[in-house]
Amino acid sequence: MADGQNNGTRVGALPVTIGAAVLRFWDGVRDFGAFVYSIFQSFKSLRFIRMRAIYAIILQQTKYTGIDALPFIIVIAMLLGGVVIIQGMTNLPKFGIEGYFGNLLVIIIARELGPLVTALIVISRSGSAMATETATQQWSKEILALEISGIDPRLFIVIPRIAATILSIFSLIIFFDIVAFLGGYFISLTTIYIPLDMFFQNLGTAFSLKDLAATILKSLVFGLLIPLASCYYGMMPRSKFEIPIFVSRAVSRTLFFTILLNAAISVAFYFTWLE
């Protein structure tokens, strides 16, 4: 028996490891699903509650996630817009370059960099903060106190953060795009003159409603994913010792799934939709 088991471990080590990993992943997905379901469940108490309590939290969270991140976003957008334009100017042939600046900016900034960089900044600033805050609240029994007060912690902690993050990410992406376009324009002026109105008309033409729809969808998806995952992992720790483990897990997994979903949305919008 012991021999057989040994054999089994040796021969079947890889399948067992993979199988265990798949099962763990599946358990995690199911658990996360249950968490999301419980949040939907908490909507039932929405009709009893006063919006003012949640409203104040949404305001606070929007300030932390959105307004406080704005200077950061503006600087990064300016730099990235400039970099994209400089790369475009040095690498695109001079031929017809005026026509491609707008397209280049829209494709790289508005479609990909804007939403992704914004999401990454929000994860690193607010996602980690949310996970830590939730974990600390869990540990200091604030969440228990809420629960016993008849306040559903999901409704009180997660829902306002989702609302605030969606609002913040959407606004930040738009700010990012505007700043990156302007930054790109002014940097491009050093080498090539394009009239401002022509540049913006060009940009406006290149930026389609489909791009806008993709941007809105991305801000919705990221705005849902970041607080959900952060609070999910934030509620996991059962002891102080586990807080850093789960916070780091929250950040790394949110990052991973954000990039994954960003790619998925881009593929869905710009690949299968190809005429």
Partner: peptide
């Protein structure tokens, strides 16, 4: 200080929303 906060958050959310709505209107 909630008034001030409301004002700032309002601006932060409204400016991009107006930009987007204008963009859609112009585009359509």
């Amino acid at each position: 200080g909630l008034g001030r906060l409301e004002y700032r958050v309002g601006l932060f959310v409204l400016i991009p929303a107006v930009v987007v709505v204008l963009f859609i209107l112009v585009k359509l």
